[in-house]
Design a protein around this nucleic acid. Sequence first.
DNA 1: AGCTTTTTCTCGACAGTCGAGAAAATTAAT
DNA 2: ATTAATTTTCTCGACTGTCGAGAAAAAGCT
Lengths: 410, 410
Amino acid sequence: MLTKSSTELIRQQNRALVLVALRRRNGQSHTDLGIETGLASATVTAITQELENENIIERTVAPPAGGRGRPRILFKQRRSAAYAAFVRISSDVLQYSMVDYSGTLIYRIEEKRDNAGQTVEAFAADIRAALGRLAEKSRVSPSDLKAISISSKGLVADDNTTLLWSSVLGSQQINMRKTLEPDWQAKVTLNHESLLVASALHTSLSRKEGKPIPRLAALSLGHSIGLGVVHADTYESPRARAPGFGHMIHSHGGALCRCGSYGCIEAYAGSYAILRAAFKVPATTLPANFVPFIEVEKIAVQARQGDRLAKSAFREAGTAIGNGLARLISLHGKMPVVFTGPGVRFFDLMRPGIDEGLSASLGVQIEGPPEMSTSLDEERLVFEGHLNHTMSAIDRDVIAPKILGQGGTP
Amino acid sequence: MLTKSSTELIRQQNRALVLVALRRRNGQSHTDLGIETGLASATVTAITQELENENIIERTVAPPAGGRGRPRILFKQRRSAAYAAFVRISSDVLQYSMVDYSGTLIYRIEEKRDNAGQTVEAFAADIRAALGRLAEKSRVSPSDLKAISISSKGLVADDNTTLLWSSVLGSQQINMRKTLEPDWQAKVTLNHESLLVASALHTSLSRKEGKPIPRLAALSLGHSIGLGVVHADTYESPRARAPGFGHMIHSHGGALCRCGSYGCIEAYAGSYAILRAAFKVPATTLPANFVPFIEVEKIAVQARQGDRLAKSAFREAGTAIGNGLARLISLHGKMPVVFTGPGVRFFDLMRPGIDEGLSASLGVQIEGPPEMSTSLDEERLVFEGHLNHTMSAIDRDVIAPKILGQGGTP
DNA sequence: AGCTTTTTCTCGACAGTCGAGAAAATTAAT
DNA sequence: ATTAATTTTCTCGACTGTCGAGAAAAAGCT
């Protein structure tokens, strides 16, 4: 949507431009910023002075690049300019992190969860209490906490607020904004974990390539199957989505899934599904809620030793994923796929099935199969995703719009 | 992507704002424009004067709204300010339309096509020649033709330029920009027909609702199956995509499709597929290239009289579509679906299958089934889609960026 | 101390928006 | 026939912002 443009808006945009540049590389001189943002030197001065008065950035001196000349002044984010908290909800642990404005982790709490059926209220109370402790321990005053970013697996509504379905709470829904905004004036957002992974991969790979990758998918293989997709159409900021890939129908009326539906991808490719197939348990048996990964590992060993049943369990999982990716590509176009999560250890076993499942579609036949790669260290990617999303949101929505009545003595 | 902002850019954006307002309702006064754009009166004056000098808009007087007072000056698009040509490629006819800057159709040519295998070169030459005649007959000088918008069914690459696969040319690819840009300096774009339909429906329904609809799908039922999806995320202009829905896998290793793959949705829901199912022809038989719609109509009559085989043919088609929509919703979220094309006549027969195919997915179970409706008059929707896309592109890319050395005597 | 080099900062010109109120063009009232 | 009222357009000066050029600053080198 086009909106009214005024001179003040220009300043806001150009402030954002400087903040983004600083986010890309912290500690840049006046001249660096001029080059990176494309702004005139005079404009850079005006903006950096403003930001300095508002205590957003600070200066340090550094010797000139060419050995002699006037020393450069490097601008850096003031670490105490703002804070953000991340909450990572996974099936067995809740991880709370506090980061400062420069994006450095300053405190972390981890809490084991018992997987017993918990009520939404108790769950919400736990999170509220833990966030309180996090702020206290890291000595962040509530008014300085500008954003709370939450990630979870499962089905996230696209208001970026409501968790519709999760393996832990089932279909008990929870609205994170309503839960947390009374306690904090920070902006609360909820994203699917795979969205953050995809987003982190997208920025890091785009930087490596030197230009934005038009599309990218991240597929997390674990107890559940999660997909994140990033689209970067020309001239607009990339947008990420985390669709309900794990519970997309693979085969109409097929195997029973943990979610209660029949034929979901997860009912073929989730860890419990692999177990079920390997032990010839009927596909209509209600699956176990949590399968230790060691069990899957055992089957993988058998498969690698040539066991036919074990091999076909992984192959079937691959076919479900391959078909799903073929459908994704039919709807979104060809894009590279990065596999993450603990399940990548079995990627080689699933690969034949994936290739077969992909090959069936016209799009793949015409444009060729997508590039596929694996990436370990999902935890780091989730953290980076949180960081990218939150810090750019703070820059864009809190810092760039000049707030009057600010600025004082450092 | 954020880019440098300057005062000139503001003007460009605000010019665009005025042009968009005029596109929404042609013939608005100074005051109207001020209200609709949110710009100050002084700014409106500045911009309208500029546009007038550049011969983009013209003024007519009208009595004041309240009976007395100074007469209003209504600004209207100057019809000769620019022209656009549309080419609609369908399996049996090529339709060429010329419209002026106000969006009024001023000339049209239709050419029957023989469905014999034609080479890409001959096909390209046909289009080039017809466009030449179109410009000549409508007395539009080549330099005034600012855009050529082409629509087709099949698989369109997302460079908006290349036709990757079509039922007519098969997998002989054709790059429309390369074909036409040497003759015309107009901007050439190729879009899937269903994308234009979806886009037209989106703007008209959004206007009816008073606010932009977040998502919408248009499903065209004909010889082939085409899907267009429109996304209107907050604060950005809506974007449309036309995925290869018809050739998305419905059932792995299933019925043989016209495209050569097995298991495509079209191989179950295309008109030839319904025929095949109704006559119990094996699903692996190579389908006929063109099926007269009368044949499908006959089967529909039988189905409505209770013939079981005929009924199940439509039901199966419905299931394929329903499953496909369930998958679409898994990946994109819930959205209303509008069915268009000649096949909507059989919508009632397919409906049970569609409902069944939809119900299988978790997303549908949680958020409920999507709203479904039908719309006849696909041809008008395609034309409106062409119009929306092209005219806003001309406004945004040609008119709004002030071109120096313009303006003269009308 | 003076010259060179590198970098930051300042100044005046220019482009654009905005609000207020003047000006214009008409009908209604006297 | 004037004058008043009304509606709408247009103009003026203040303000915000960007830009390029060149001044100023702060160092090393000779």
